[in-house]
């Protein structure tokens, strides 16, 4: 009742669906990050991944069209934000940047503005490429987004006028605390949730469920996909920039196949059709990954130490993706939003 009058047009708004995931993300981040500096770094990277997975959920989850191309928006975001915040002395003297285009050397923004700029850059890039890509359907679209990733990587990897090419860009300013990345991610979660409930989000899901029928209902598929692609590119650009500000450096290889695979795996493991799926997938995959990493380094996790050979982690993550797809093709969340267990929700109804 309250929900309907609160935001017009939201037909299925429910407090638990958005607030419990928000509390889980904020609570676990704050709790874990206080325990050790390595966990703090892990939480920061996980928040970047979560931002990326949210971006993928907006487009891939709602449209059902696979995109391998989001890494290119993250690359662009990272390059914009990295070049905007790297100190002048580094840009003038680093070997890898000796050919940098002059306007880029002078390009300077503070941290907040550079994040904004990278989000805009990601969104604009998505808007430009999406105009072409969204005309394609099904698998052709999936492969074409791969081509987009290939082009962006190929150019950024080889051209030393617009960036550090195949070297790392050092000295990118880092987040001083957890607050800014956490707030950004929580904000993105709220936005994505409302987007999923909005007219645009629901129309896009209709095109996913039945391409022909949705066209018959007068939905302009290219247009709704394109708008979501833009929003999704915006978040991906932001995610790439955040990743650069956590690591303190930009390297184009960081956003290529491994990154694409890891974030897609998170989305699919959790369940691509819902916000909760994106959050759950990120938590599960990065949690498992971190535990295995600590065991590879023979560090105890909650008092338990298992000595694993290096490389186990990557095998387990890839294996997990395959097994989840065999066992539960819609992911752990099965495509549902967060729901309290039955006995709890019954208490609240009265």
């Amino acid at each position: 009742m309250f929900a309907k009058s609160w935001v017009k047009g939201l037909t299925r708004f429910s407090f638990t669906e958005i607030f419990i995931p928000l509390i889980i993300v904020a609570g676990s981040s704050l709790w874990l990050s206080g325990r050790s500096t390595s966990l703090l770094l892990f939480i920061k990277f996980t928040l970047c991944y979560l931002m990326m997975v949210l971006s993928l959920q907006v487009f891939v989850g709602n449209s059902g069209v696979l995109s391998f191309g989001h890494g290119s928006f993250a690359m662009v975001g990272a390059f914009v934000s990295g070049l905007a915040t790297a100190p002048l002395v580094i840009k003038q003297h680093a070997m890898s940047l000796s050919n940098l285009w002059q306007p880029l050397v002078d390009f300077k923004l503070n941290l907040g503005m550079s994040l904004l700029a990278s989000a805009i850059a990601g969104g604009v890039f998505a808007a430009l490429t999406g105009g072409f890509l969204m005309r394609l359907n099904g698998l052709a679209a999936g492969i074409a987004t791969f081509a987009l990733l290939g082009i962006t990587y190929n150019i950024l990897f080889n051209n030393n006028h617009i960036g550090p090419s195949n070297q790392a860009l050092p000295g990118v300013s880092q987040f001083s605390s957890l607050t800014l990345p956490l707030v950004l991610v929580l904000l993105a979660m709220v936005l994505v949730y409302f987007y999923n409930l909005s007219r645009l989000g629901r129309t896009l899901r209709a095109t996913r469920e039945d391409n022909m029928a949705s066209r018959g209902l007068g939905i302009n598929i290219v247009r709704v996909r394109w708008m979501s692609f833009m929003f999704s590119g915006l978040l991906a650009g932001l995610a790439g920039a955040m990743y650069a500000h956590v690591g303190g450096a930009v390297q184009v290889q960081d956003y290529y196949l491994g990154f694409t695979f890891f974030t897609l795996a998170m989305l699919i493991v959790g369940g691509s059709a819902s916000l909760w799926g994106a959050v759950l997938g990120t938590i599960v995959v990065s949690g498992v990954s971190q535990i295995l990493l600590m065991w590879e380094q023979s560090t105890p996790v909650l008092g338990v130490t298992i000595h694993l050979p290096i490389g186990t982690r990557a095998i387990v993550i890839a294996g997990m993706l395959v097994v989840i797809l065999l066992w539960r093709p819609n992911g752990i969340s099965n495509g549902n939003e967060f729901k309290l267990p039955n006995f709890l929700s019954k208490i609240k109804v009265s």
Partner: peptide, 16 residues
Amino acid sequence: AAPAIMLVASFGLSKL
């Protein structure tokens, strides 16, 4: 399964 699901599965298998 949907072609997209199989595509992702084969991507995972490839990494594995």
